[in-house]
Amino acid sequence: MINFLNIEYFLEVEKVRSFSKAAENLYTTQQAVSARIANLENELNCKLFLRSVPLEITNSGKKFLFYAKQINCINEEIQKEFKNISEDNSGTIRIGLTYTRDYLYMPDIIFEFQKKYPLYTVKSISDNISDIEKKLHSGKIDLALGAFDDCELYNNSNIDLFFFDDEELVLLVNKNLFKSIFSESCIKNGVFNFYEFDKLPFILGHPDNLSGKTSKIFFEKYKINPIIKAQSDNIQTILKLCVNGLGACFCPKNLFENSSVFNRKNELLVIKGVDELKHRMYFGILKTNPKIKILKDFIETAINITNHIENYNKN
């Protein structure tokens, strides 16, 4: 097997056409350089240089030069790649989260993380929360972000949870739709009898996502047999149907307040402050993941940038 160092010595000798000059550039002895070239010639069973002054490369040497340059480039790439891996400087982080959270949080977090780790690729994988949990357990993703239902289950398993942020959903209803069913005084007073919301049509999200699970809890608590007008996995579709007056919907408060796409917010009645609409979000990491250090750095970046944005919005 050809030694990478022998190739390095060969390329230097070919460049300067002198054993002594190559030895000087490589910080070694002339005998060491001559021995390595001789080893190469024995392995290849041919002469690479004619021992003249200056050295003259043979036809076999010219052919080997073509491959030697490629091998040397590959060697440099290997050394660089594994140096970065050993120092946690490069690689890929796969994070599973819902489409809405991806849209809400990841642009700012990834941008900030890239400042510190420019050689890392962050791959966000949007899915429903049930499939995200399965992918985390199977190792198909490195991180999961969600309002996990059973934190005790996770604490007793092979998943570490790290608190990220509080998340609140709001119940949105087109004002004209609401007035057509209930009295206008409800809107002015902000006092609602949720047990009467069985008269209200709804647009629901995916049953496994937070909005879907929240709606189920809400309906069960207030004994609502909902009138379901439409269902969609896409929050943008749900919101457009809601603002057009088809029905009420559950939406993350941050998405509703911070998104520039909702230029018809004044047409919507926003019902918030309901206990069933409040949740805690966590990052989940498989305890056996070999990238645990860089993943914790990612989480720390996410928490810092999110706190900064929230404080900025308050001010």
Rank of each mutant, 00 (worst) to 15 (best):
L5W: 11
F10K: 01
F19I: 03
S20A: 08
A22D: 00
T29E: 02
S34W: 12
A35P: 02
R36T: 10
I37M: 03
A38N: 13
N39S: 15
F49V: 00
E56Q: 13
T58D: 00
N59Y: 11
K63T: 12
Y67N: 14
Y67I: 14
N72G: 12
E76C: 05
E76A: 14
E77T: 13
E77P: 01
I78K: 12
E81N: 07
I85K: 15
D88W: 02
T92A: 01
T92C: 04
I93Q: 07
G96M: 01
R101A: 09
F113E: 01
Y117T: 04
Y120A: 00
V122S: 05
S124P: 06
I125M: 15
S126A: 15
N128I: 14
E133Q: 11
K135W: 14
H137Q: 13
G139A: 10
L143G: 01
L145N: 09
F148N: 03
D149I: 13
D149T: 13
E152T: 01
L153N: 06
L153A: 10
S157N: 07
F162P: 06
D165M: 05
D166V: 13
E168L: 10
L172K: 06
V173R: 00
N176V: 04
K179W: 01
S180H: 07
C186I: 05
N189F: 07
G190R: 08
V191C: 11
V191E: 11
F197V: 06
F202W: 13
G205T: 15
D208N: 12
G212Q: 10
K216R: 14
P226K: 04
K229A: 13
K229H: 09
A230N: 13
A230H: 15
T237F: 13
I238C: 05
K240S: 03
L241R: 06
G247R: 00
C251G: 00
S259A: 10
S260Q: 05
V261I: 06
N263H: 13
N266H: 12
L268T: 03
V270N: 06
V274S: 05
V274A: 07
K278L: 14
R280G: 04
F283C: 08
I285S: 01
L286T: 08
K287P: 05
I294W: 02
L295D: 04
F298K: 00
I303Y: 02
I305T: 00
H308G: 09
E310P: 09
K314I: 15
